[in-house]
Design a protein around this nucleic acid. Sequence first.
DNA 1: CTTGACCTTCCCATGATGGGAAGGACTACC
DNA 2: GGTAGTCCTTCCCATCATGGGAAGGTCAAG
Lengths: 148, 148
Amino acid sequence: MNIGEASKASGVSTKMIRYYEQIGLIAPAHRSEAQYRTYEDADIHTLRFIRRARDLGFSVEQMKTLLALWQDRARASGDVKAIALEHIAELDRKAAAIAAMTATLRHLASNCHGDDRPNCPILDDFAEAPLASDMPEVSARFGRANIG
Amino acid sequence: MNIGEASKASGVSTKMIRYYEQIGLIAPAHRSEAQYRTYEDADIHTLRFIRRARDLGFSVEQMKTLLALWQDRARASGDVKAIALEHIAELDRKAAAIAAMTATLRHLASNCHGDDRPNCPILDDFAEAPLASDMPEVSARFGRANIG
DNA sequence: CTTGACCTTCCCATGATGGGAAGGACTACC
DNA sequence: GGTAGTCCTTCCCATCATGGGAAGGTCAAG
């Protein structure tokens, strides 16, 4: 199987397959005589595993660990669960940050007429509101606005 | 005021102030004889506006538009509200994607003993679950896992 | 005058992904 | 056996917002 077929079968783009190989997430593929990468069913299985983990928001680093655990028949399920729980906690943090932003924005938008007149409480707030960093309890709860 | 003081007063790092100037989000600062950037109260006001918008998750492009509207006394509040509502919609999309991930992960984790034994439903799922892209209604609802 | 804190520009890195160019390989059709 | 078109290869560049750090100039306090 060439990389294009492997991509279709796994749902991982050819660009990403090469990238994952380059950074060592997956082993270098076998090569044909013309140096084409070739993939077996087992490789597709691994790529689908990666695709699934990625869809659930795991980072490449986490996927490295998860793959290693997957391939270790003697792993402790507790190790896997710990990674999953840590990831859930991080997703919850992002969700909380987003919820805080939308709550504020919804409040501001609801007070804005949204018509042709210039008066706009949204801009007024941006111009006058104290910084989150000046409010210790807020920044402690949500940290930066980095939700990526 | 030098850039360090402007940074402290606005909550925007010196790196970011220079970057925002470079990409044209803010006007080039006035310079002292030694080519140091100098800032007036009005500039701090602008930087705080940016900081506030950034904390609410607006992109640089959105901030450009918002700044222009802010500085346009004749703007229509509807234009501002439209940007805010579009941003809220995007944040809601991200929140939904995160919620879908955490729901799945919580379910998987709850079925995992999390002890020293190797059996792990989380890894089993990763290895066997169908791809989101094979389930049209799911990918239509949530798109990619890109929550950044 | 030295020390240390500040400023400048320039380059590099992040993380995951895609775009695209230049060139080689393969396949299907005539 | 050409040729067209599709595939593959590697290499470089871009994204987005942010920070790190080097090399060197400036300034203020002692």
